[in-house]
Every structure is written in structure tokens, then in C-alpha cells.
Computed example of a mutant assay.
Amino acid sequence: MRFAAIADIHGNAAALEAVLADIAAQDLGMSDIVNLGDCLSGPLEAGRTADMLLPLGLVTVRGNHDRYLIEHAAGDMHEWEADAFRQLAPAHLDWLRSLPFDAVFRDVAYLCHARPMDDSTYWLEQVTPEGQVVLRDLSEVEAWAEGILQPLILCGHTHLPRVVRLSDGRLIVNPGSVGCPAYDDDMPVHHRVEAGNPLASYAICERTAAGWSVGFRLVPYDHMGQSRLAAANGRPTWAAGLATGRLG
């Protein structure tokens, strides 16, 4: 059994297009893809991204930024949502409203965006008071995984590809970000998350005789075109992150 996990597209239609082509080249079909949310928010091509995603019928869970697009009034949205909202049709918003918080895929994988019961807290990482993003203590990671029976647990949100093995052998997998390799945030304190490269990231999970294998794929695409689009839309931080995977 093999399937692909994508997350954190953030309206980057060019990156999504490249990732879908790469997945097809791995002999995986659309029914073999799970999407961990944060699909549309950002200053890029939210409408085109939605037009690509909706017909695919991927198993998809709702991310925090997906939720913001349907919960916040248009005049109260953060710039990431405001940029995207202007491009979205009612059908796109209805699709976001239909997405579940979490899901189970083929009885082998539990899916959520960030962590169980909370779509906006890092699961595998934590932010120090000094603003450093570091690996979270295993005991805390495991406490949030209590009650999940599937051998694979998939999450996104931090945009960083990572696998953490729990004491009982379960794996928590973050496939990285398809479309946003670097960002900064003020919560809980100001910090940066930087992949260090501009490639579109996703993961392939495969069940073998020895257990689950996880492979990360980093896919080239016209990231500079998306960087220029972000700059033209007045988002220099996005432009920097898309160009290099770093913010400075």
C-alpha cells in the first residue's frame, strides 16, 4: 500500500500542479492522495488552486487558515485570508465549509492539520521564549496522540517535513509544505519557520514487510514566478520565502 500526503498549499497553484504531476509519475492516482489542509490562504492564486482541488475529490481535512476564510468577516481577515478571499467563488467557500476537522484514511492513517482537538498548535515542534523553533518533548507529543489507533498519524501546519516515531512504534509524519516554504508568526512569540529551500514538498508513505516507510519528495517548479507574483501583490515576506525558502 502506497499513498501521498500533501499539506499547506496556501494558494500556490504552480507548486500544486508540479506536485500532482510528480505524484502521477510515482504511479499513484488521485485516490491515493490525502490533503492536510491550509489550501488557499495567501497572496498567490487561491481561485486557481481551488479550481484544481475541488474536482479531484481528495480526502482533505480543514486547516486553521481554511477555517479563517469561512469564520472571519471579510473586513476582519488577516492579510493572508484577505488576499485569497477576493479570488474565491461561493462554491469554493462551500467546499471549505464541508471539510472535516480530522479523518481516517483507509484505516491506516489518522489525519489532522495541526494536532488533535486544535488546528493552530504545533504538534512536533515548539517555540522557545527566544523565538527558536525546536523539537517538542516526546512525552508531550505522545500525550496528544493518546487514543489514536492508526499506525500512521499525519499532520501539517509547521511547513517542515518531519517524522517522529512514538514509543509504541507509531509514526507521526509532516509532509512539509507544497506552496509556502517560509513564514513568520507572532504566536506564541515572534518566530520564523524556514525550510531552507524553495521546492514544493510532499511525502509518500508505503507499507512494507518491515513497517511503514516514509519518503519526502522535494519538487522543483517555477518558484520565482510565484515570488514575483507575491511581490506584485505587495507581500515582500512571501516573495522572499518563495524565492529561497528563507526570510532573510
Score class of each variant (00 low, 15 high):
74 A>I: 13
74 A>Y: 11
74 A>P: 10
76 D>T: 12
79 E>P: 13
79 E>K: 06
83 D>Y: 15
85 F>D: 11
85 F>M: 14
88 L>G: 03
89 A>I: 10
90 P>D: 08
91 A>F: 10
91 A>L: 12
93 L>E: 09
94 D>S: 14
94 D>I: 10
105 F>C: 02
106 R>H: 09
106 R>C: 05
107 D>W: 03
110 Y>L: 05
111 L>I: 03
111 L>A: 00
112 C>T: 00
113 H>E: 00
114 A>Q: 02
117 M>G: 00
117 M>W: 06
121 T>F: 05
121 T>Q: 14
122 Y>V: 09
125 E>T: 01
126 Q>Y: 11
126 Q>F: 07
128 T>Q: 09
128 T>P: 09
128 T>L: 05
129 P>F: 13
130 E>M: 15
131 G>Y: 14
133 V>G: 00
134 V>G: 11
135 L>K: 11
137 D>K: 08
142 E>V: 02
143 A>I: 00
145 A>F: 08
145 A>K: 08
145 A>M: 10
147 G>H: 10
150 Q>V: 02
152 L>H: 01
155 C>P: 04
155 C>N: 03
158 T>F: 08
159 H>F: 02
161 P>I: 03
162 R>V: 09
163 V>P: 05
163 V>D: 07
163 V>W: 08
164 V>Q: 06
164 V>P: 07
165 R>E: 15
167 S>A: 14
167 S>I: 08
169 G>Q: 14
171 L>H: 12
171 L>S: 08
172 I>M: 11
172 I>R: 05
175 P>K: 06
175 P>Q: 07
176 G>Y: 04
179 G>K: 06
181 P>E: 06
183 Y>P: 02
183 Y>W: 11
183 Y>T: 06
187 M>E: 12
187 M>R: 09
190 H>P: 15
190 H>I: 14
192 R>D: 12
193 V>K: 01
193 V>L: 05
196 G>R: 02
196 G>A: 04
